[in-house]
Amino acid sequence: MPHDVQELKFLATPEKGDVSALLIRPEGATHLLVLGHGASTNMRHATLQSIADRLAEVGVATLRYNFPYSEHGKGRDGQAVCTETIRSAVAAARKASPDLPLLAGGHSFGGRMTSTAASESPIEGVHGLVFFSFPLHLAGKPETKRADHLADVAAPMLFLSGTRDELADLDLLRPVCERLGRRATLHLLDTADHGYKILKKSRASDEDVFVEMARVAQAWAAGLR
């Protein structure tokens, strides 16, 4: 089902200027998730579109946005620019829908930069973080250094990770989440890879993977205090 989309602009950083954003707010929305894109994509990428559409169907509004480098077609911004952009995006979301509880996160790089921002200091107004395919390591190079900062994140975290994700070896991701204790919830998506492509013949569930993620995210958000 298509949803109405409101196009916005907000100031990412004083040096980088304005970036674009897309707000989907379904009728009866319960939360608003500020959603960052992957490293080599942008807010209009099909994966992010599918995530936003399925979330809308379960009453979760989204504000997708571009990082300055994807807005202007230049080389990737440094970490400081990305984390400042995330805080600016959250502020824009709060202004657009001041009545909705806020969540923040993103797909892959967008999620990791959101957790990085939250590890530096809490993101104002954000009640929880949602990671769609948290990129724990580079493909073929399993390690956990990228997770070190998660120990400094105070907010509850939901990890939505495919069992075939080549950037999140489950033998490493499970212990990372276990060490985070009650702050972390790990939900595994059967046969899904980093971009949520599935193996239809061997997948145990008939549920669409994006529908599954939206259902789990909505239930998790509803349980936050």
Rank of each mutant, 00 (worst) to 15 (best):
P2G: 05
V5P: 01
Q6H: 02
L8Q: 09
K9V: 02
L11F: 00
P14A: 02
E15R: 12
E15H: 05
K16E: 08
V19T: 00
L23K: 03
P26G: 14
P26R: 10
P26F: 11
A29Y: 13
A29Q: 10
A29V: 13
T30H: 12
L35Y: 04
H37Q: 09
H37M: 09
R44T: 15
H45K: 04
H45Q: 09
I51M: 11
A52T: 13
D53N: 14
D53L: 15
L55S: 13
A56L: 09
G59L: 05
V60Q: 07
A61K: 07
T62Y: 06
L63R: 09
L63E: 10
Y65W: 14
N66S: 06
N66Y: 00
G75I: 00
R76M: 08
V81F: 00
T83I: 05
E84D: 15
E84V: 06
T85E: 05
A89W: 01
A89C: 06
V90W: 02
A92M: 05
A92N: 01
A92E: 05
K95M: 10
A96G: 07
A96V: 10
P101K: 10
L103V: 06
G105C: 08
S108T: 10
S108E: 08
F109V: 00
T114C: 10
S115A: 11
S115D: 07
S119Q: 05
S119G: 08
S121Y: 05
P122L: 08
G125N: 03
V126E: 01
V126Q: 01
G128W: 00
L129D: 04
L129N: 03
P135M: 01
A139K: 15
A139L: 11
G140H: 13
G140K: 12
E143K: 13
H149D: 08
A151L: 15
A151S: 15
A154N: 13
G162L: 03
T163V: 04
E166P: 00
A168T: 01
A168L: 04
L170Y: 03
L172Q: 14
P175E: 11
E178S: 13
R179N: 12
L180C: 11
R182V: 01
R182G: 00
A184R: 09
L188M: 13
K197W: 07
L199K: 14
K200P: 08
K201P: 03
S202A: 10
R203F: 02
R203Y: 03
V209L: 03
R215Y: 06
A217E: 11
A221L: 14
G223Q: 13
